[in-house]
Design a protein around this nucleic acid. Sequence first.
DNA 1: TCTATCATGTAACCAGTTACATGATTTT
DNA 2: AAAATCATGTAACTGGTTACATGATAGA
Lengths: 194, 194
Amino acid sequence: MKPLALAVLAYLLERPMHPYELGKLLRQRDKQQSIAYKHASLYMVVGQLRRDGYITEHETGRDGQRPERTVYRLTDAGRAALRGRMRELVSRPVKEYRYFEAALALIMALPPAEVADLLAQRQRELSEQAEALREFVAGARERDVDRLFLVEHEYRLALIEAEQRFTERFRALILERRPDFGRLWYELHHGSGP
Amino acid sequence: MKPLALAVLAYLLERPMHPYELGKLLRQRDKQQSIAYKHASLYMVVGQLRRDGYITEHETGRDGQRPERTVYRLTDAGRAALRGRMRELVSRPVKEYRYFEAALALIMALPPAEVADLLAQRQRELSEQAEALREFVAGARERDVDRLFLVEHEYRLALIEAEQRFTERFRALILERRPDFGRLWYELHHGSGP
DNA sequence: TCTATCATGTAACCAGTTACATGATTTT
DNA sequence: AAAATCATGTAACTGGTTACATGATAGA
């Protein structure tokens, strides 16, 4: 089960809702920063969850002249699935594939001197991101938001900081030109490069 | 452009190849640890790259009684696209969505006591992963593999270590039961459960 | 020689995205 | 009252995955 489906189940724990309402809540609570979704996916996911018996139609009505809306609620199976999946996600790290990792695996395709520059650029952007995140968290804390609601942002910050340190180390390693690092690489892009 | 497509272009930089050969190389060089792909995706990606003019048919022949194979090579456009995309990936961090982050964003769905246990379990698995990675890298270094070829693994290790530290801190925070953390959460799951 | 496993690819399926629609509010 | 934006959903497209095929070696 993907994050959006999980979010739908988790939010239906609070009360029955219709798809659009779920989306609004996710936005209001800043969850799109952690859970990606495109508006249309909500309807798809809701359809899947209904098909799989995790949610069921609660009522369907219309509010003024707005289009008809269907309100869904959790089933027992849905509650169980939510718990099971949450347990899994919290207790077991899953291997995820990052773009930067892929780029590192293919780094030989670029000349070392250029990579050093690109990494410097990355360091700048990472610093900006980290700073923005810190401000976001600090702002929320000033408005007395419980830290529990910010934990996912603190997690992202921790990862960004780790990436900053790695990027710095890697860049230094390239510039040092140690003899036991990247021999082939420096040779391949001899002088200024092919 | 996704990592697999990038890998195809990067490897065709070395010499023209047919799809299966690309896959073999990726396996041999342990790139599947950083670039996910399912065998059939190779053919799809190769088809897309051809369609987009980044690679072109180099020759097509048969080797013994094996099925006919088509060998592809890079075009100039392909070389340019590869460089452009690599530059982008190295110099600009892209927001990526992790499962654990999503779970944290919905953590209220589980009771705090249970979460503390699940986090302990996660810590154990992370330690194992980190240890396995360290051994993998150390083993390669002993066989005189250039550190450049291990950089993506060092990156993963750095992220895993950051996650270990975060997990530990978060778990401690839950167990401390500070009054400014998770009030609602502890109340919601009062005593032993809902 | 029978059974795995390698080598190589195609086809059908499914999930997620982009694009399309359309009435209701709100802003200018 | 025109323009913008909100609210709400459907439909078409596309990309990646799973499943299906099939001859060739290699091991038992």
